[in-house]
Amino acid sequence: MTHQEISHHRLVSQKLYKTSPFSPQEIVQHLGAMQAQDYAMAKWAIGSRTDATEKEIEEVINSGKIIRTHILRPTWHFVAAEDIYWMLDLSAPQVKRFTNSAGKKYGYDSKKFDEANAFIEKLLSGNNHLTRDEIMQELNIKKASNDDFLSAAIMMNAELDGLVCNGKMKGKQITYALLEERVSKPKTKLSKEESLAKLAQRYFESHGPATLLDFSWWSGFPPTICKSVINAIELQLSSITIDNQQYWFKQDHTDADNFRESVHFLPAFDEILISYKTREAAILQEHQSKAFTNNGIFKPVIMENGKVIGTWKRTIKKDHAKIETQFFNETETDKKQLIFKGIQSFENYLETKIVIE
């Protein structure tokens, strides 16, 4: 394996070649956690790895087989229902530092957060799914001018405490529901060491080849802890050193026979970019500012043979979806037509006509 081949291997490990059929929940469980603050794009992150339509993925999320909540880093992720409790037990204490800090600005300490939790539990009990605005109205918390940070901190704290998660969509509005009414608590709990080992192995098998610092960034745990857990599971992984940098990946990782010419129109915040500390394997340094910003805003990208060659955006119309593209380099019309064949899976996913402009 060479440094230039890393991105190809990641396409395999992240199931973007779609060599076998997987259900939406199987894709989420395979990847461990998929960043999901942009809900529409996060659904396509699943869709780009399966043959499921957007409606089918929405049904799986509404059913509670896939949970959307704050976990790992302080942002939303999709997590499989089977993983939600052990992953929350592991990562919630570190993420709660952010909610505790935000709460202090509004006079919220642990006691006030607990009081809010108790009220929210009564409010949502009996499979009562409510939007954040509806919950805040009952808590008598009015929207503030500074982006409503207090309500966000209250609900994130409730998520991290394992009280709430996403409920069923109410039209186009996201709701909250009680987690235990959606997913039953397991009878046994993993130790922190067991959970860390499980998380690390899941990451390297689904995102590898990846480095210690990649795992540290993705998991939110400091490099010292990540180094210890890699040492504990290294016999279950394979590794290769390239340019004095060690990359870890699954033991039975398939070789170049799996590679093929490919074009992918991938969503904003897709794991293929956001789950690594550095992204040079997939996108040239000179183009990175066109695909993501320093403050963490990622655009939808076009990948050809494992390399990002441009960005795209979609606008949903009444009877079609409009796709606009921006390539990093001048691209011939004939080649564009070949590249645009890569949008076919998005058309199938949306179940509507695609118009490219």
Rank of each mutant, 00 (worst) to 15 (best):
M169C: 04
F113L: 07
L11T: 06
S275A: 10
Y276Q: 06
K341F: 11
E205C: 10
I354A: 14
Q251K: 15
L266C: 08
V301C: 13
A281T: 08
L350K: 01
A210E: 08
Y247D: 14
W218Q: 01
T311M: 10
I61Y: 05
E261N: 09
V301D: 05
W248P: 01
G342K: 01
S7C: 07
E54M: 14
T2P: 02
E330I: 13
T188C: 02
N100K: 12
K172N: 01
L190P: 10
D83G: 03
I272F: 13
S145K: 13
I46P: 02
G107F: 03
F327W: 11
L196P: 05
Y108H: 05
N348T: 01
G296R: 02
L350F: 05
T75L: 03
T99V: 09
I61W: 05
H3S: 14
S48P: 00
L31E: 05
T293K: 10
V95M: 02
G103S: 05
K65Q: 14
Q25S: 01
H8Y: 14
C165A: 09
H287M: 14
R97W: 08
H8V: 05
G296K: 11
R10N: 12
D147F: 15
T75N: 02
E194S: 13
I302T: 06
T352A: 06
I46A: 00
R68H: 00
S145W: 13
K336W: 07
M136K: 13
D270Y: 03
N62H: 13
A144R: 10
A36L: 07
A42C: 02
R260E: 08
R202I: 03
G167Q: 05
S191M: 02
V183A: 02
I242P: 12
K170D: 07
T69D: 01
L150D: 12
R182F: 07
I71T: 12
A81N: 11
Q245K: 10
T2K: 11
